[in-house]
Amino acid sequence: MSDLLEQFKRMIVEKNRAEVCALLPELPKNHSLDEIYRQAVYPAMNEVRDLFKARKVGVPELLLSLDLVRQSIDGLSQGSASGRNDRHVILGVIEGDVHDMGKNIVHAMYQGYGYRVTDLGKNTPVARFVEVARSEKPDLVGISTMMSTTVDKLKDAIAAIKRESGAKVMVGGAFINREIANRVGADGYADSAATLIEETDSVLAG
């Protein structure tokens, strides 16, 4: 790996926004997008995820590193770099819930690993999930909720999405555990950002 890519990766892991911004214009002059992703962005994502998993950093550090990844991807590709692997994910927080920090972390994780992400935001009606899933035919729909008050809507959404689009559905959020995920009919459940990608691989392979 070049010194430039190594430094870029390190600055993401160390959450140094100023350095990341300074390096961004230099990267495309010396490396292809593919090299930048494979040699810097993905390894940075792996390291950040491992640090979080090992409890060496907290949610703020995870958020900031992911924000720098998001900023880098947008800067490098003017927003067109997502979809570097061929998977497409639709994400949203279910109707009745406005807590979107977890969903935003999931968005950044997927984006950092090259998924194409369609983010429907928070408080998303069931009909909107279904409409977009039907028209965009994603590989996966991810639905988040923090609350118990939205579980019935979650169940409705999962049934309708599967019926109308055939997409797999994963769920997550503070109130969800694997038992509730099973009861609402989800194909998978991720308990944290640390396990998201492995769970996704498992669901899509199934």
Binding site: K15, R17, P60, E61, L63, L64, D67, D100, M101, N104
Partner: peptide, 12 residues
């Protein structure tokens, strides 16, 4: 502030 922004403000 929103927890997400607050958490990043804690660092920045």
């Amino acid at each position: 502030r929103g927890m997400e922004k607050l958490y990043m403000d804690v660092l920045e």
